[in-house]
Simulated assay, not measured.
Amino acid sequence: MELISVRLASIALVSLAFAPLASCQEAATPAAGGQAGDNPASVDFAREDMGTFDEPWAMAFEPGTGTLFVTEKAGTLKFRKADGTVGTVSNVPEVDYGGQGGLGDIVFAPDYASSHAVYLSFVEAGPGDTRGAAVTRATLQCDQPDSCTLRDPRVIWRQDEKVTGSGHFSHRIAFSPDGDFLFIASGDRQKMQPAQDLSNNLGTIVRLLPDGSPAPGNPFTAEANANEEIWSYGHRNILGLAFDARGQLWDLEHGPQGGDELNLVERGANYGWPNVSNGIHYDNAPIPDHAPGDPYVAPVEWWDPVIAPGGMIFYSGALFPAWQNNALIAGLVSQGLVLVKMDGTAATETARYDFGERLRAVAEAPDGSVWVAEDGPEATIWRLTPGS
């Protein structure tokens, strides 16, 4: 194990580097949106190596057992039991692997105790050189200590339409706290303008019933030619989608060059992409900033330089009181965990914990420990617990 001690002074942000049984403190830096963080708590944690996985993309703990399930981007679904046993799940959908495409998110159904239903997102091939994200629902059956299978998988949702390219699938999944509604993030597929076109579901967050049908009461059902799944639109590439302790839905998305966003997701709202952004295009062409009075919803928190988020949770456990009800973000370019303090509808980055490696995913275990997955091949998954 390695023990990491973090000291956060008032009106300051502390970044630290991992070192065995030691810590180091860097100069205070402002939060990315221009505000200084204020969190006087001290956080000590140890990290434990829980195994190596190949391009892990998402993690989820099976309700009732504490078994960790991990999606690997090339199309393998694995699990790790509390005793260290690692196994593989068969009958996973065939994925179109390449670029940002492959096997994506995993979420257990709210009624998993009775249904054993699990939801997986993935990228599937289309006609010609096209592809798009999809979500399948299946029943998880585990008859052997080191193997499980997906029974009766059925695709319940697809990006409409499939297009060329291998980027910006998003395909994050979140259930509403009451379990009644299924939300799926659908990226703009690097095509930009479809995010402002309600006739398709690219660049949107959709709201469905658990069986994949459009949810009653969605905001655009009465509009001619509008996709009745859409809950919000004007999104770019959503890599985090989660409900906070107040039951509010938040998304975390990659901006272009600059302008990563944390958004409070509201019914029928337009988040502006590609018409506005707090970043610029990769060729340095300008994009109008979010501005008061424009018809778009501005991000609550944003980053320039970017953090390049890999995933997000709202921590609810008791092991880390200073993190409770706040957002923990796995950072790719930022190479560590980013802590965002939540205060109602406000959010402010308050700390970064430097791992020195790109982080792809973060999950909370039933015991309140935090698990983080590095990005890429031969990636380590770490278990974080309070230090002494």
Rank of each mutant, 00 (worst) to 15 (best):
S176N: 05
P210M: 02
L249V: 05
V206P: 03
N200S: 09
C148I: 06
C148K: 04
R131C: 08
A245L: 07
H235S: 01
L241S: 05
P210D: 00
C148Y: 09
G234F: 03
C148A: 13
L249N: 07
F175V: 07
L249T: 04
R207D: 06
F175N: 09
D178I: 06
G132H: 09
R151I: 14
Q144M: 14
T164Y: 09
L182C: 10
F183Y: 15
T136V: 07
G179I: 07
D244Y: 02
L208T: 00
D143K: 10
S166V: 11
P153D: 07
D197L: 11
G203A: 02
A133N: 10
W157G: 07
T136I: 06
I184G: 09
R189G: 06
F175L: 12
G234R: 01
S213T: 04
C142D: 01
Q193M: 11
G247L: 08
D188S: 14
G132D: 03
R207G: 06
A133D: 09
G217T: 03
V155E: 13
G240T: 13
I238D: 03
V206E: 01
G128H: 12
C142F: 14
I238W: 10
T139M: 02
D197W: 14
S170D: 06
P210T: 02
R172K: 15
S232V: 02
